[in-house]
Write a protein that binds this DNA or RNA. Structure first.
Lengths: 190, 190
DNA sequence: CGTCTATTTGAATGTACTCAAAAGCGGTGG
DNA sequence: CCACCGCTTTTGAGTACATTCAAATAGACG
């Protein structure tokens, strides 16, 4: 049922007892959002950490001049939030918006703290989650600095084929840091 | 003495007993490196996590064409390693090199696992460390995508004044993703 | 079917790069 | 202690990559 995916996601890294699993799931809230709905608006407080049961979300930063920069995409089995805003209780620096109808599990920060306190294994799980997220971002930085746009596109397509199927070229362009027009000319060369 | 800085760094987030602190420090190895010495070479295995007691290190990726991209700088009180290579036991994707004479504490992965096992508080500490590192990288990505080089430079200078004092303009340029020549023209406008 | 947005195409522009060379600076050895 | 050497930084000219703007085409959705 609705908790299967999230429990198996956690189960990849730590083993929970029945009691621990049910304590954890008791803190989860189910949320369904329609395509184009905002899960989080920039400058709002970010109250929840989200886990995607199904659908696709996109996190993006919006500048004063209206330029969008995609921070990340999330599909089923991914965790997503504005980690800066969530953990520091600060106005969020990004929007999170549904690319298609999505079902998510929500976890509040106070509940997460309860979980950490009661089940230390969750500290380990989130340590691993944050470690992987850090490595992912660092590798992305290296690629952005060292590779031309054309290779960044090729690598994105081969690394995230499932995401490529779901999102628009314009959204990929804003993830790669190029304009949609330029991505179009890159793709023509392929 | 040599453990004061690292213990106070950890103490910001978790409280250790005397016994825990001494178990932890028993796993640390002191290392001194001279200016320009390599702490890690790209493609080597990355056996250690490092904490800087003093000095300055720079982590950078080197492309086939010889282009350097600075991943991060570290000064006293910072942790640094090739997190990808360290945690996955893979060939490292970056070099780590001393910008000036430096003193570091080294921790091996097997020892870190022992510490996690014996003192779960360290899972929490590293969860927080990884979380902050993730947030830092994510904010850097957003800036790289949304800001022109000139503003990225201004923000770097105001965010990391202590690092600016230690490293060359060329190294800052490779962190910002511009050529030294272009950074020079940016600075002229200031 | 009509509207809205995404995608493509092309022309003009600008930002950042390459290459070359001069100037500055720090370290080293005679 | 000073002269030289190597590397960093600056400067400038020419170039290339990527952007902006405008408009046509194509797709998605009600």
């Amino acid at each position: 049922m609705q908790y299967d995916l999230i429990l198996s996601n956690i189960g990849k890294y730590v083993k929970l007892t029945e009691a621990e699993a049910s304590f954890f799931t008791s803190k989860l809230q189910l949320k369904e959002v329609g395509k184009k709905a905002y899960v989080l608006q920039q400058n709002e407080r970010c109250r929840h950490l989200y886990f995607l049961n199904s659908g696709t979300l996109r996190a993006f930063h919006l500048t004063a001049r209206g330029k969008e920069s995609t921070v990340m995409f999330a599909i089923a089995d991914w965790w997503i939030t504005d980690m800066y805003a969530f953990t520091n209780d600060q106005p969020s620096v990004m929007n999170i918006k549904a690319v298609e109808d999505s079902q998510l599990m929500c976890l509040s920060y106070p509940d997460l703290e309860l979980i950490w306190e009661k089940i230390p294994k969750f500290e380990k799980f989130f340590r691993i989650l944050m470690q992987k997220a850090y490595v992912r971002e660092q590798l992305r930085s290296i690629q952005n600095l060292s590779l031309p746009a054309t290779e960044r596109y090729d690598r994105f397509v081969s690394k995230y084929p499932a995401i490529v199927k779901k999102v628009t070229k314009k959204q990929i362009a804003s993830y790669l840091g190029v304009t949609p027009e330029f991505l179009s000319t890159i793709r023509k060369e392929r």
